[in-house]
Simulated assay, not measured.
Amino acid sequence: MISVERNIVVRLPLAELVTYLEDFARTEEWDPGTVSCVRLDDGPVRTGALWRNTSLFRGRTTELEYRLDVREPTRLVFVGENKTVTAVDDLRFDDEGDLTQLSYKASLAFKGFARPAAPFLRTEFERLADEVAARLPTAAVAGRT
């Protein structure tokens, strides 16, 4: 398993940042690996909502179906799966007035034949986490509701 974590300060109040990030389709705006992310169900975002995320990683395109597993005032957890990996994005929010401290943890558990590759991919996932930390604050402020 690979886990990366970044602490990110975002110049939005907590509720606004949670509202922005709970729509996983917005990963197109802040995740450099995401090519597209489409909601698969209708209605308001709620626990159990589904998205299809298409990502480009090391020159290869992959699709994962994500669901919103936890939706709380200060925490969101998205779980994505396909035949080779389970991905978990765990976002925790701390209110700092007009700012929000976001603890962003992404974990990848490889399955089957892909499992031995995990140690060789850590450096690339660390780089992607750095890019998320750099892009997310600007994207969230630009996409505020």
Rank of each mutant, 00 (worst) to 15 (best):
E124F: 13
A140V: 14
D94I: 02
E5N: 10
R92E: 14
D89W: 00
T100D: 01
F57M: 02
G59T: 08
V77S: 00
L68V: 06
T138A: 12
P119L: 11
M1T: 06
T62H: 09
G48A: 01
L76F: 01
V70I: 15
S36F: 01
A114Q: 01
Q101V: 03
Y66H: 10
T54C: 08
V132L: 09
Y104Q: 07
T19Y: 10
K83N: 02
R58K: 12
R39W: 09
F57D: 00
K105W: 00
S36P: 08
R115L: 04
E96W: 02
T84M: 10
D90H: 09
R67A: 13
E29S: 14
T61H: 11
A139V: 11
E29A: 15
L40T: 05
Y104G: 01
T145I: 10
G43Q: 08
N82R: 05
S36E: 12
E63Y: 04
I2A: 08
F113P: 11
S3Y: 03
F93R: 00
D94K: 15
D42W: 03
R58D: 07
T123R: 15
G33V: 00
A106K: 06
W30L: 02
N82F: 09
A140D: 09
T61G: 04
V45M: 05
I8K: 10
T27V: 09
G48Y: 00
S107Q: 10
R144I: 02
G33M: 11
L121M: 05
N53C: 13
Y66M: 09
R92T: 05
G112N: 12
V9T: 14
R75G: 11
Q101K: 13
V77L: 12
M1V: 14
G59D: 05
P116F: 06
S107W: 00
P137Y: 11
T84H: 09
F113T: 08
R92A: 08
F120N: 04
A133K: 07
G33C: 09
G143I: 07
F113R: 12
S103Q: 13
R71Y: 06
V77G: 04
T138V: 15
K111Q: 08
S3F: 06
D69R: 14
G80Q: 08
R26Q: 03
D23K: 03
A117W: 09
T138M: 07
T34L: 04
Y20G: 00
T74V: 03
